[in-house]
Design a protein around this nucleic acid. Structure first.
Lengths: 199, 199
DNA sequence: GTCTATACGTGGATAGAC
DNA sequence: GTCTATCCACGTATAGAC
């Protein structure tokens, strides 16, 4: 399948470096055939990143989750998507956007589609919705970079359950935690209070 | 100055899309002159990202900070670097690495140079150094993406002090917090046996 | 020293043979 | 339907004129 090859190439090396010729070669066909089926390269890319009705599913899953568990649900839903075959399109889109082209597209997609419902709910129940969701986006974007793009261990190979346990609480603090407005939260907030600085 | 123009172009659009011609145009000179001064495009890029002895300074600053305040120091040092003129080289390097080329270079630079000292100290005093520093890297990488590349508000315009107050504690939890191995810190006691299956 | 001219490669896109 | 041949734009890099 040409679409599968295109998805792989786009996700692996990004939009620009994924030549039509290389995609065709990976699919075992001729480059002209790709043009014949999908038209321009941009058309092909749109076809690849257009998940079959999945954004709505993701948004709905996020919308159903209670706010005080959203950190966990976010990790499970989004990382699960990344790891799925269809999720490679999302990885490709992210990579290409960061690479230099069409950042505004990704920005509006993130803030106005995926995280909009979350932002509104946080705004109503807690406040600072825009800031909190932006911070959530930063952690999720970084997780994508480290796990899927740079593939830094051990994060690249960690199970979703372990990821939930590790980064879930941090997301939860961004979403519903206190102390995001007030000055610095004192280090004593942690049990690890030690004047000596040793272990 | 040609170097300044190159730094801007590389940081703005990445290595590939920043043509020698556009750099020369931005500097108000001819493209051949760029070649004459700096040789190949790759040579020019190396020249741009080679900060004047700054990596050592950063590493040293990180090495001097006490472990239980490292979250704050990390934000201050690294974000301060990004926002400085010379930090544009770092942004350019990151963007280009994510774009598709030379990921291994950035990976080894991050894990073996910048974060190595932190990892060793965390390993000695707390444990799980590799995992904890990788998680820290994920938050910092995401912050760079959201603040400098995608420029999502309000994170893009937040002061360093506010950033310290907001994401510092999350970094600190990654570095020295408990519960990264055990099941989950749980900000509130929720039913651990879930009521509804995870997405 | 600085620009003009050009060689060379890569990659997108089209027309046409079979 | 699938591939061959080709056109064309762009970008790196070099050589040489002034």
């Amino acid at each position: 399948m040409i679409l599968a090859a295109a998805r792989s190439r786009f996700a692996e090396v990004g939009f620009d470096k994924a030549s039509i010729r290389s995609i065709a070669a990976a699919a075992g066909v001729d480059s002209a055939l790709v043009h014949h089926y999908f038209g321009t390269k941009h058309d092909l890319f749109v076809e690849v990143v257009a998940l079959p009705g999945d954004p709505a599913m993701v948004v709905r899953t996020l919308g159903d989750a209670p706010l005080d568990r959203l950190g966990e649900v976010l990790i499970r839903t989004i990382v699960g998507l990344w790891d799925s075959p269809i999720g490679m399109g999302a990885v490709a889109a992210f990579r290409s956007a960061v690479a230099g082209g069409d950042e505004s597209l990704l920005r509006t997609f993130l803030t106005d589609v995926v995280l909009k419902d979350v932002r509104v709910r946080v705004d109503e129940e807690i406040g600072d919705g825009a800031k909190r969701t932006a911070l959530v986006a930063s952690q999720m974007a970084g997780l994508l970079v480290v796990r899927k793009l740079l593939q830094i261990e051990p994060v690249a190979s960690m199970s979703i359950d372990e990821l939930v346990a590790d980064v879930g609480p941090n997301l939860q603090r961004y979403l519903t935690g206190s102390g995001l407005d007030t000055p610095a939260p004192a280090p004593r907030a942690f049990d690890h209070r030690d004047a000596r600085g040793g272990a």
